[in-house]
């Protein structure tokens, strides 16, 4: 989690050069192979930083905060995501899980990803606690999905998102297999890998992702780590947050409050 700390350390001056850790160095060295090939093939002129009108991606580094104690399982986020992004039926860029737990047993469900909310449920055991956990792409820093993409169709942007270039994706599905969170799928319409983009078409216009926009209980929050006074930044910097499957060292950028041991 050293990277996380370096993010949270101090209100970094906007285009702060990141200290190069050993792992990063190795990764860069690995990437160099591809880079050299690209260079030899007539390196492309460095494009402008402009990814959208009036938007400089070096001025932002996004993070996501999910407070599981607030989630009521209404599924508004799942519906909003589908409407905003045209997510194909039966596939999910975000979904909500319900955990019903007793010291002896546990039950998890997510009917249609929570798209229509949750029905009442009877468990064979007497639950002692129960809660909802929204899930989505964690936009990991050390993401296994980008690592395994054979053609450079998956990548991580400078403002901290993991995106898929649907024009270069060959639809091999390796990234889908490599994501430990089940956040990716092969779209039945485009036959390419698809996933949550943190609504990049919204955040580059200063809007929040659709799921955050509609969340009625502020379970979902979206923030910018490059803004000193950002509430999400403050919560991650000062609060006790956890991430999903930390042992895999993927360094997720979705942080959770009140995560239970049952959640994977």
């Amino acid at each position: 989690m050293d990277e996380t700390e370096s993010d949270a350390r101090a209100p970094a001056p906007p285009p702060a050069p990141e200290p190069v850790g050993r792992r990063e160095f190795l990764a860069n060295a690995l990437r160099l192979g591809g880079g050299v090939l690209v260079f030899l093939s007539g390196a492309p002129a460095l494009g402008e930083d402009h990814v959208a009108e009036g938007y400089d991606w070096t001025q932002h580094r996004y993070a996501y905060l999910i407070d599981t104690e607030k989630c009521i399982g209404c599924g508004s986020c799942v519906r909003a995501c589908k409407a905003e992004n045209g997510v194909p039926d039966g596939f999910f860029r975000t979904w909500v899980e319900r955990y019903v737990v007793s010291p002896e047993a546990s039950h998890v469900d997510s009917p249609k990803g929570g798209l229509d909310g949750f029905p009442p449920i009877q468990t064979p055991f007497t639950p002692t606690k129960s809660f909802f956990v929204p899930k989505m792409c964690n936009h990991c820093k050390e993401t296994p999905c980008v690592q395994v993409c054979p053609v450079g169709a998956s990548y991580r942007t400078q403002d901290g998102l993991v995106l898929v270039d649907a024009e270069r994706c060959i639809g091999c599905g390796y990234c889908v297999q490599a994501c430990p969170y089940g956040s990716r799928f092969l779209s039945p319409t485009t036959h390419t890998a698809e996933k949550c983009t943190w609504c990049y078409h919204r955040v580059t216009k200063g809007l929040k992702p659709a799921c955050v926009e509609v969340c009625p209980t502020a379970t979902r929050q979206f923030g910018d780590m490059r803004r000193e006074d950002d509430p999400v930044r403050l919560a991650i910097a000062h609060g006790r947050v956890s991430v999903l499957q930390p042992h895999l060292l993927t360094e997720p950028q979705c942080f959770y409050l009140g995560l239970d041991k049952e959640v994977r």
Binding site: A52, G152, L163, T197, Y200
Partner: peptide, 18 residues
């Protein structure tokens, strides 16, 4: 190692719905 133009394409992939 990715096509940088795609970042701008993603930013303009569709108008915001909400």
């Amino acid at each position: 190692p990715y096509r940088f133009d795609n970042v701008a394409e993603q930013a303009a992939v569709r108008p915001p719905q909400h």
